[in-house]
Design a binder for these strands. Structure first.
Lengths: 225, 225, 225, 225
DNA sequence: GATGAATGAGCGTTCATTCAT
DNA sequence: CATGAATGAACGCTCATTCAT
């Protein structure tokens, strides 16, 4: 599939430049949204921040909603990419603690992708049309978790897995979002992840974990007493 | 030649019909916000929905922000009222399970006050000025929970209570909000409250609770097995 | 959620038609101000009179005040231009009568530039911010007169030149403004200028003038008698 | 025309109170106009400043224009009253210098009645309908001056008295207005009046005045030289 | 294609005026 | 008569979008 060298570059730069323009616009949108909020983020301001004319902006995005929707998609993609990379390909997890631990870490990393943008997208952007897709991340997440729990169902005490998924998918990301917003540098991420994993395992299991010796001991004592 | 709008309430209604007008405006604001979203909720539209002239609206609310802020306050007040009523005056709780249970029930009731309005207020209204007070509910909540945990600290395994409060205050309301939005009639509220209480106790305690006989039994069997 | 309007000019017109738009707007402003007065001169009406959309008006002028301020500046510039042209470069006047005469003529010409506009600008426009610059013309004028009187101080009887300047700068333009408004065609401008020059010289000098033979003769008679 | 004592007071208080209300409203109008300018002086604000309901205001004044017109008339009346009192009843003046002197003093006193109000009324209020009557004062003044000059016509050099009146009626008040605005305490009023009288006499007479010995001497020297 | 001048519906807000109480 | 709640036309201004250059 090798093309003639003198012909190819003539068209490629144009496409590359167009893609660069599109990227610049989307990044500018993110910047303006974060700095000015959704209300003050006008298309003209975004175009200016992107170093592009308003006409060019509308060449690539037919409306403001389309523009923000593209940003939403980009953002969700980036978060998913992080999760996917960290989770690797262990679609068949064996150990619940390990699975929970890696998932929590993946989520923290995902919510650290661009917390300020995530905040504006969740808290200010009107949830109409494609802009609702900001919730897509957590929907996909629910699928991942559901599959994990299904395949590890003998390790958990819940019959109704759907309910457990629902609780976890709403509890865990909320805690992470709040933590990430309060702790920009991530100094406490380890404590956070340990707390969350702890909570998850305690919630799901008959006994929290094989590793948490002290706890089991105490429990055992209590129980045997 | 325009003055900068302020946030101060403009006029105290002295006549009965004036109070009726104010109430109609606030209720209309809620309706329009829910149906059209914050962006499309113009002051003229709200006035129309209230069956009131735009002039009357501005006689009582000096700006759109003041109007929505009044609604926020009303809404938070109603939620707090519900919590306070259910919690009663047991500011000195003795039993953790009971305390958690009643708190969860109070929260579910509070988030059922007007879930759609709550959603718009949290997810679309820009968080500037007095509009930030939508978060007030959960701040007060955090205080309540912190006090409970302090007074019951011998029953829980956490040294750093602040971290536990943080996790709970972000996890529990999120689950409730999502549940309330998905289940308008509240058919599963019992299961929800039992799940949440379970999660809370398992997270906080060495053993979930002395009273939860069945659970302990099951756990004991498993453990002893 | 409204921003405080500024006075800074908003956009430099880069295309020819943009400059035409700006000119049309300023001229329309003058027309509407003259015909309808300041109060009824709304920005929408001005835009309509200019054959331009309201949006275009605000593309070039960030506020109504800025718009009128631009008109004030244009108007003052035109008046100053006339004065400068007529006064020429005789910044070092030698003869008082000649100097007064030419100054009076220059002033009459200046106040004839657009008397109706000048009237509205002086009598109706609120004197706030840059709109105060309508007074700039007479401030500059005061400087010119002060310099003339300083360099001709041996020909005048006043020790306190500042007081003489104050009196003249307030008396002479007022008379001219009134005359110009009453006599649209300028039929009596010669009589006016002669009267004013006469008044000025009689006010400033020991003897009015060498040229006014008859007067001196009469005076001499009276005195010698 | 003496009425029965028991009947009269019953109605009079009402009228007196009504007149007091009207006065309060007019004075409040003046205050608000001065402090806030014409643009920001709303009828509601004026009613509030007068300690009267907006309904009552409209009971006495059918429109904002009527309200301000009443203030204009009151103000012009007060100025005229001052002039009339000072001028006394010498409608048949004999001496020009004395006549000019007293007129200048009367004018200064008149323009000191309420300079700030006068300024707003002249410089901001739209000159439509009855509001034009702010110019009435100077029209009446012109009549007074015209009569003076007519009866003293043998002492002045002008054949066309109308032209002299026009010049004076426009020159003198302008200087006084400016002086009064610049010098709130009236510290320089004597110098001002002497300057103006000087100017007037020099403008009108063959020789300024019989009394101004020093000046005549100087003039004589010059002439005889 | 890229530009940016132009558009105008619609926003938040004011205020002179009316009228039920 | 006084009150003040209610009215709504009109204002200054913004911004998503179009289109001639």
């Amino acid at each position: 599939m090798r093309a003639i060298p003198t012909m190819l570059p003539r068209r490629r730069p144009r496409q590359a430049r167009a893609q660069a323009t599109v990227d610049a616009i989307i990044q500018a949108t993110a910047r303006v949204l974060i700095e000015d909020g959704y209300d003050r983020a006008s298309t003209n301001r975004i175009a200016q921040a992107a170093g592009v004319s308003i006409g060019s902006l509308y060449q690539y995005f037919p409306s403001k909603e389309a523009l923000v929707a593209a940003l939403v998609e980009t953002h969700v993609d980036r978060m998913m990419e992080v999760v996917t990379r960290i989770l690797g390909h262990d679609t068949e997890p064996s150990d619940l603690r390990q699975s929970a631990d890696i998932l929590v870490c993946a989520l923290i990393a995902a919510y650290r992708v661009d917390p300020k943008l995530h905040h504006v997208l969740c808290q200010e952007v009107p949830k109409i049309g494609d802009l609702r897709r900001i919730y897509e991340f957590e929907q996909i997440l629910a699928d991942v978790i559901r599959k994990h729990l299904q395949s590890l169902r003998h390790q958990i005490r819940h019959q109704n897995i759907e309910r457990a998924v629902f609780l976890l998918i709403n509890a865990v990301p909320s805690v992470i979002r709040a933590a990430v917003e309060n702790d920009a540098e991530g100094a406490n991420d380890e404590a956070l992840s340990s707390d969350l994993t702890d909570m998850i395992l305690r919630y799901l299991c008959y006994v929290p974990s094989a590793e948490s010796g002290q706890f089991i001991a105490v429990t055992a004592e209590k129980v045997s007493a």
